[in-house]
């Protein structure tokens, strides 16, 4: 006779209740509120009063909104650099085998470094008069670059820090992917006479395709959410030369315009969502084409 399926009654909900309370209030509840606030005039001093689409009209009419959105789009260029660098690092770590352990730990140092510390360190390296980078450029006869004062170099500097802080993490993702490729598969291909590059192209790269798609999506989302790097490296520059989340911070917590900031928050969400959906669609299509 089959044992009766255990009945759980309210037990599952008891286990779920702490998580439900936190996520329900601070995320799901907050999402509902951000939608409502975006349709209201709501400042640090008054409101919220319903005003329909007023905030969205103001947002679309404001120059800094489009400038910051454009800069966020530029910031996305950090994603291919992250993929290239973290994939190269993963290949190096994997081919060193057990001796690659020290390198793995070294590459993780930037990941655990708080962004404020990374920013302070990189400001030193990017310093326009005495920094290492401009000194190195001078040595090969190039003009100094205004890394910390001139648009779009401030963006490029922040992207340096994002790349530096991020690639060790994504390296681990690729390493997981590489280690999951069966060794026999690669050896079989090599036995069949494939060159190293051939094995990489025919066996390793296709096996890594899902990791590449994931890293692409995750790192591009975090590029669109960037705040800390700009706060540390580009604090002095005009807001129109920064990206979307610094603009949100400015509008909400320095200008106290919660309604407008909520409309901006939702716009950022829609931007991230549509970008990710397009990427998923494209990667699905290229997989179909490959098979």
């Amino acid at each position: 006779m089959k044992a009766p399926r255990p009945r759980f009654g309210l037990t599952p909900f008891a286990f779920l209740s702490p998580a439900a309370a936190v996520l329900g209030v601070f995320f799901l509840g907050a999402v509902a509120q951000v939608v409502y606030y975006s349709f209201t005039r709501y400042t640090a001093f008054s409101g919220p009063d319903f005003v329909g689409l007023e905030n969205y009209r103001r947002l679309l009419a404001s120059e800094r909104f489009w400038a910051c959105l454009g800069n966020s789009a530029i910031y996305l260029l950090v994603t291919p650099a992250i993929i290239a660098l973290s994939l190269a690092a993963a290949i190096v770590v994997e081919s060193l085998g057990s001796r690659g352990r020290w390198l793995r730990l070294a590459l993780f140092l930037p990941v655990i470094t708080p962004t404020i510390v990374a920013g302070v360190a990189w400001r030193l390296i990017l310093n326009e008069d005495s920094g290492l980078l401009n000194s190195a450029l001078a040595m090969v006869g190039l003009d100094p670059v205004p890394w910390l004062s001139r648009h779009p170099w401030t963006l490029v500097s922040a992207m340096f820090v994002t790349l530096w802080k991020g690639f060790g993490f994504y390296m681990m993702v690729f390493l997981a992917g590489l280690l999951a490729v069966p060794r026999e598969l690669r050896e079989a291909a090599a036995l069949d006479g494939a060159s190293r590059l051939g094995v990489f192209r025919a066996v390793t790269l296709p096996a890594l395709a899902p990791s590449i798609v994931l890293v692409f999506i995750v790192s591009s989302i975090s590029a669109l959410k960037v705040f800390d790097e700009l706060f540390v490296l580009a604090k002095g520059s005009p807001i129109a030369q920064q990206t979307a989340v610094p603009l949100l911070y400015r509008i909400a917590f320095e200008e106290g315009d919660y309604g407008l900031a909520s409309a901006l928050g939702l716009s950022i969400f829609l931007f991230i969502l549509s970008f990710s959906l397009v990427n998923l669609r494209l990667s699905a299509r290229s997989e179909e084409a490959a098979s």
């Binding site: 779920l16 439900a20 996520l23 209030v25 601070f26 995320f27 799901l28 509840g29 907050a30 999402v31 509120q33 951000v34 606030y37 989302i221 959410k225 705040f227 989340v245 949100l248 911070y249 909400a252 917590f253 919660y258 900031a261 909520s262 928050g265 939702l266 950022i268 969400f269 991230i272 969502l273």
Partner: peptide, 24 residues
């Protein structure tokens, strides 16, 4: 339903809901 709601919270970055989170 709980699964779907969890996935939803994963899709919304904290930056999007900063204002209501602050008000709460």
């Amino acid at each position: 339903l709980i699964f779907v709601l969890l996935l939803c919270t994963m899709m919304v970055p904290e930056q999007v809901v900063l204002v209501p989170m602050f008000r709460i």
